[in-house]
């Protein structure tokens, strides 16, 4: 564990807390893509199949359980909570996310570290996580307005990705055998998807104005 990875994990956790806070405090999920949240739930369940086979640390197991539980809870609220589900921007959240699932799985069948069920699901989860934010970004683009908590949620998610890149550079320089090419290349792609959002986030922060994305 290095400082960059810890910072990445903490900003990831913070992003989920911000999202839960928004849903809990405002009883609303407006501006949040249910499709992105469903993709994250699939990502965590597929990636953490090793929860039962490899023990790494109490921290690792605890965080995995938190990520699986929180992502399922968010999807449950958006689908079934009587008040929250009413605020869901159904007509704006039309990205065909099943394509992303299919394409990621196909890629995992071709590119993986080992041809085992666990490794293929691991690679699938890495590819899917890289593109899972797309329905959310499309929804924001369509609605134009971004409320503060939603903006912060995406900002922290992007920060988590940026810290993970620093973590990989650090590990590459300090660990003799660190070569996780699948994770690193997908991670860079994933972070690049946030670049546009970050640009507008910083502009609004600098001007002290409300975050607005161009149509």
């Amino acid at each position: 564990m290095n400082i960059f990875r810890l910072a990445g994990d903490m900003t990831h956790l913070l992003s989920i807390l911000v999202l839960l806070l928004k849903i809990y405090a405002t009883k609303s999920c407006s501006g949040i893509s249910r499709k992105t949240q469903e993709l994250y739930a699939i990502v965590f369940v597929a990636r953490y199949l090793d929860l039962f086979t490899d023990f790494i640390s109490v921290y690792n197991t605890f965080m995995k359980v938190v990520f699986i539980a929180s992502s399922l809870a968010i999807v449950w609220c958006m689908r079934f909570h009587p008040m929250v589900r009413r605020s869901y921007d159904r007509e704006l959240d039309t990205f065909r996310h099943y394509f992303l699932v299919g394409a990621s799985f196909a890629l995992a069948l071709i590119l993986h570290e080992k041809f085992t069920v666990q490794e293929i699901f691991w690679a699938f989860s890495i590819y899917l996580e890289a593109v899972a934010i797309l329905p959310q970004l499309v929804l924001l683009q369509r609605s134009g307005n971004v409320d503060n908590l939603t903006g912060q949620y995406i900002f922290f998610l992007g920060a988590y990705r940026a810290f993970y890149i620093l973590n990989w550079i650090y590990r590459y320089l300090t660990e003799p055998h660190f070569t996780r090419w699948i994770a690193c290349v997908s991670g860079v792609v994933q972070t690049a998807l946030y670049a546009d959002f970050f640009y507008y986030y910083f502009i609004s922060w600098k001007n002290n104005s409300k975050l607005k994305l161009p149509a």
Binding site: R5, D9, D50, D54, I56, K64, F67, W122, H177
Partner: peptide
């Protein structure tokens, strides 16, 4: 031979 360590990142 070198054995791949378990995946320790989240």
């Amino acid at each position: 031979c070198y054995q791949e360590p378990p995946k320790d990142e989240l």
